[in-house]
Design a protein around this nucleic acid. Structure first.
Length: 506
RNA sequence: GGCCCACUAGCUCAAUCGGCAGAGCAGUUGACUCUUAAUCAAUUGGUUCCAGGUUCGAGUCCUGGGUGGGUCACCA
């Protein structure tokens, strides 16, 4: 147990004083007649002069957290805050008695949750204020919240001593949320965005499903997994790296449109755009191909932007992003040529490698042709794709679950969406030929074998499912965290995850 | 994993060439019946991230470590 600070010791003394007076510092129940926003709304809608003095008002009861206190001898002002807003309290000795005011001043602190009863009125400066006739503690704050003072000065909001140490904010996200309203707003936007996605897909007859997080074989993406173990079953398990293989099994089972929103886990590097666990949306759509999916994608993201940002134009890191469809569509070959002057279709493997050496880039020993193309793309193109852009038609060897283009066995029907320099979506016309799929798995296993001596697991059960017959379909994946980054103008994924992964201290 | 930067009171930050570790806010005590960064007076509060080293003397310099931020690399 850490030692208490002086402030904490003081507050424990106050807590005991409350108890001695028979007031619980942590009562079981609270009462409240209105949220703060509802109370002030009603008041300002129908306040006559008599209302403004408080004479006409009915008593109401509000709950909230104390955010400021100003004591002035025989009266005190304070602000309390609930989820809906803030309101000022006026506590007068001639309303509640001198001793009671003294008790308030002595034992109630910033950060305490309180319940207050009184009538609404306006102060001389015109601020809607609760003229308090009764108050009680709802929950004593023993440790002081990080001090942060805010003030409106002629429309400018200024914050003093803001709690903005990034590490401390992440480690104590509860305190961050408690004192930083703009942080709370990010997570409201996140929630509304997910609600909007569900609404959009549900309206189009997509069925939301849940598939296993613990999987005996991982697959559906190029990533290293976290592994764990089931004790009773003596079975090694992996945390999923994607939902793909399970969702497509459901198409075999007769569902035509399914989606899942949930957590993926990837045991890889952490960065501004990567967290070890992240939220993914995937959907699979029978009888559709990747062009249908492109159309749905731009409609869906535009819909979400309108729902949560009141329009399809979103400011991100100084750029005005326009989500209104149609978005730019460009093939991988074209866009790579545009930004790097490399046309890989007219390059032999050796020529491709020479582009790396010419530019002073390392060529990984195990890289396939497709991998090299992808690396060039990430380096020269990706950071430049600011407006929503579909990049389509990818090399076959880096897309083992996608169907090849008719008449072009080196290329698959796949697209990715890039916005603000971020990779946002990945989708393809899904491979549904079990014989082709088995060969792709085997090819991958061999490549992997060469390099690390570990075989990539082949999901035989998935192949079996596909062998029963899988309808042609378009599949789609989108990183929800990155979408929220775009919608809230955050450059770090950790700002849009409530409790981002941090190394433990000590 | 490499490199760069940061870490000082509850919070935000100062501390000159290596010379008594400070301010604002918060806290505590007092004054004050319309304040809102209330004001006024007084006042408390420190393992300067950790462990070593150099020095008469280290927040400051050196070595190692920790955590975070940034960046590059890695990521079938």
């Amino acid at each position: 147990m850490r030692s208490l600070t002086e402030i904490e010791q003081n507050r424990l003394v106050k807590l005991e004083r409350l108890r001695e007076r028979g007031e619980s510092p942590f009562p079981h129940r609270a009462e409240r007649s209105h949220s703060i926003a509802m109370a002030t709304k009603h008041f300002s809608e129908r306040s006559s002069d008599k209302d403004k003095s408080g004479e006409n008002s009915l008593e109401i009861t509000l709950c909230g957290r104390m955010r400021s206190v100003r004591t002035m001898g025989k009266l005190a002002f304070a602000h309390i805050e609930d989820v809906s807003g803030r309101i000022q309290l006026l506590i007068r000795a001639d309303a509640i008695g001198k001793d009671r005011l003294k008790q308030f001043e002595a034992d109630f602190d910033l950060g305490d949750f309180v319940q207050v009863t009184g009538k609404l009125m306006e102060t001389r400066t015109g601020e809607v204020t609760l003229d308090v006739s009764n108050f009680r503690m709802l929950a004593k704050s023993v440790s002081p919240l990080p001090a942060a003072k805010e003030v409106d000065e002629e429309g400018d909001r200024r914050v003093y001593s803001a709690f903005d140490n990034v590490e401390a904010r992440y480690r104590e996200r509860y305190a961050d949320l408690a004192v930083n309203p703009h942080v709370r707003e990010i997570f409201r936007v996140r929630s509304r965005a997910i609600t909007a996605l569900r609404y959009f897909l549900d309206k189009r007859d997509f069925l939301e499903v849940e598939t296993p997080v613990l999987q005996p074989i991982y697959g559906g993406a190029a990533a290293r997994p976290f592994s764990t173990h089931h004790n009773q079953l003596h079975q090694d398990l992996f945390l999923r790296i994607s939902f793909e293989l399970y969702l497509k099994r459901l198409l075999v089972g007769g569902f035509e449109r399914v989606y899942e929103i949930g957590r993926d886990f990837r045991n890889e590097g952490v960065s501004l755009t990567h967290n070890p666990e992240f939220t993914q949306l995937e959907f699979y759509w029978a009888y559709a191909d990747y062009e249908d999916v492109m159309m749905l994608t731009e409609q869906m993201v535009a819909f979400v932007a309108e729902e949560v940002c009141d329009g399809t134009v979103v400011t991100y890191q100084g750029h005005k992003l326009e989500f209104q469809p149609p978005w730019r569509r460009v093939s991988l070959r074209e866009v790579l040529n545009e930004y790097s002057d490399i046309d890989y279709l007219n390059c032999s493997d050796d020529q491709l490698v020479s582009h790396f050496t010419l530019r002073g880039l390392n060529v990984p020993s195990n890289a396939t042709r497709g991998k090299l193309i992808e690396m060039l793309f990430s380096k020269y193109v990706e950071p430049n794709l600011i407006q929503p852009t579909f990049v389509y038609d990818y090399p076959r060897d880096i897309s083992p679950l996608a169907k090849t283009k008719e008449g072009d066995s080196d290329t698959v029907e796949r697209f990715e969406v890039f916005v603000g320099g971020l990779e946002l979506c990945n989708a393809f016309t899904e491979l549904n030929d079990p014989i082709d799929q088995e060969q792709r798995f085997l090819d991958m296993g061999q490549d992997h074998n060469k390099e690390s001596g570990e075989a990539h697991p082949v999901d035989l059960d998935y192949l079996k499912a596909m062998s029963y017959g899988m309808p042609p379909n378009g599949g789609f994946g989108m990183g929800i965290d990155r979408l929220v980054m775009l919608l809230t103008d955050q450059s770090s994924i950790r700002e849009v995850i409530l409790f981002p992964h941090l190394r433990s201290k000590e």
